[in-house]
């Protein structure tokens, strides 16, 4: 929410995985991730910020889907007292860990 004070940019951004899957998520959710926040900052002149489309070369579609799920989970439980655990299949844990490190989430 904090980053959307300038309205010319859209409320939604597109995240593209390395294998071509596209996820359209709310900008406020995506900006939970530090790396995406900087990429999509409307004040910056990054290409991603202008087009509202960020290509993540090292995250595949399955993982990016989980990451997007996390963005919404985080947004939902921001001020919650009892945060429920998110469901993550065990086989994704390492890839998600790498993605989380990359995105700084």
């Amino acid at each position: 929410m904090a980053t959307t004070q300038q309205q010319p940019s859209s409320d939604y951004v597109t995240l593209v995985s390395c294998d071509g899957y596209e996820f359209v998520v709310r900008r406020s959710c995506a900006c939970v991730a530090g790396a995406l926040r900087r990429m999509l900052d409307p004040n910056s002149s990054f290409n991603e910020a202008v087009t509202g489309r960020a290509v993540l070369e090292n995250i595949n579609g399955i993982v990016l889907e989980k990451v997007c799920e996390y963005f919404y989970y985080n947004e939902k439980n921001k001020d919650a007292r009892d945060v429920p655990d998110m469901d993550i299949p065990p086989e994704l844990c390492l890839e998600l860990l790498m993605a989380a490190d990359y995105l700084n989430t």
């Binding site: 929410m1 926040r37 919650a80 860990l97």
Partner: peptide
Amino acid sequence: FTSSSVSAAPSLFETALRVCHSN
């Protein structure tokens, strides 16, 4: 503190680590 990074939810990194922990 005003930015969106303050959240009571665990970080994705932590969440993934917890899954690793229970592995």
